[in-house]
Design a protein around this nucleic acid. Structure first.
Lengths: 202, 202
DNA sequence: GTAATTGGTCACCATTTGGTGACTTAAGCA
DNA sequence: TGCTTAAGTCACCAAATGGTGACCAATTAC
């Protein structure tokens, strides 16, 4: 109860922050105008006044949040060096970094899971960001590998696997008998992905 | 309002059936004791009397439903013939059939998506079924392929990809710019999976 | 100092949810 | 025929949800 705080912008920020906290801590299922207001220690009516409702708050959150790794984060080295690598190393590098980036972003994992349940402003936003990044990637580094490889399908498979396994690891210890709660488990997955890239693109 | 039906077993079956309908049609988010009773055109109190609550109904549903393809459905040919194939063909065949089997089971896709949101009797059941099948598979056909391949990790990746992409296709037209709403889209994915198997296990 | 603006609180509403007790009505049996 | 049992209906409850109108209090402008 911030009596006497009287700072609209600060309260807005508190609400956005509270939203992120609720998503990351309790999951998207608990998200609502009541929960967020309680977490922000303010009144839900302000969500309506400042953002026009939960949807507006979500929209503000999308402007603010760092949901998805950039190209730079995914290649994690100077572009010139990266570009000089063979195609299989390029791809393996990207997916390894994608795994690590996602596992560092609990809110993103939650939104990825949310996408499975329903569509809303946040999931659509994440979808667009992701797809734009995918396009930028093929624009900058595309046309690699043998011709008979359907790069788009292959990358959908890899991205799908990474998305599923990281998102699942939020709440499940295993998948199909495989450890996914630990770093070692993901190490094995990264190695397997690397092997796939090497064998398919070489 | 089945006035005069007065048939406990039939009503039980109607409730279980209604549950499947609701899950497949409206998604797990809408599932609840009110929705199911409305769909079954009866009163929710019977869910409590006959099953002790929604959880009990879910449990009854797990006994009844055909959620996951059997080994036979996945190899879809006599075991002797299947076993004679090279490892890469074996694996590719299983994953192609897995895709097709899952796409035929809307309720299963819904439960797979549900697993991302929360754990309950149904998702745990599906988890167990799936894992048992995975174990049976490695028991019957395991130890294939080169030694440096981490078969468990590879199969987690493939299964994860298939799970994610089929479940996502319920409500999304595309993933990362790739068509996943049509048969042709999944044809491309199946081909890519086959290529991966060939290159990795050969 | 006074008045208007604005940030924040509070009380309330309708709706939906899971859950239960009391009732009615039909079937089976003496 | 009448009586007991059980299938099904109905009315209700508490809690939580999204949403709104009326109010209070601090800050600023005049």
């Amino acid at each position: 109860m911030p009596v006497g705080s009287r700072d609209k912008e600060a309260t807005k920020r508190r609400l956005i922050k509270a939203m992120e906290t609720v998503i990351a801590r309790d999951g998207f299922g608990k998200l609502g105008v009541n929960t967020v207001a309680r977490e922000a220690e303010t009144d839900k009516v302000l969500i309506y006044r400042y953002f026009g409702g939960l949807d507006g708050l979500i929209e503000a959150y999308t402007q603010d949040g760092d949901f998805w790794p950039s190209v730079e984060e995914l290649i994690s080295e100077p572009a010139a060096i990266y570009r000089a690598r063979p195609a299989d190393e390029q791809m393996a590098r990207v997916f390894r970094n994608l795994i690590r980036s996602l596992r560092k972003r609990p809110a993103t994992l939650e939104i990825l899971a949310w996408e499975m349940a329903e569509q809303n402003k946040l999931t659509r936003h994440l979808d667009r960001v992701r797809e734009a990044l995918g396009r930028e990637f093929t624009r900058r580094f595309g046309n690699a590998g043998p011709a008979e490889v359907d790069l788009m399908a292959l990358s959908a498979i890899m991205t799908g696997a990474v998305t599923y396994l990281t998102a699942r690891s939020r709440r499940s210890e295993t998948f199909n008998g495989m450890e996914i709660a630990t770093d070692q488990g993901f190490q094995r997955l990264e190695n397997a992905l690397e092997l796939v890239c090497k064998r398919v693109l070489h």
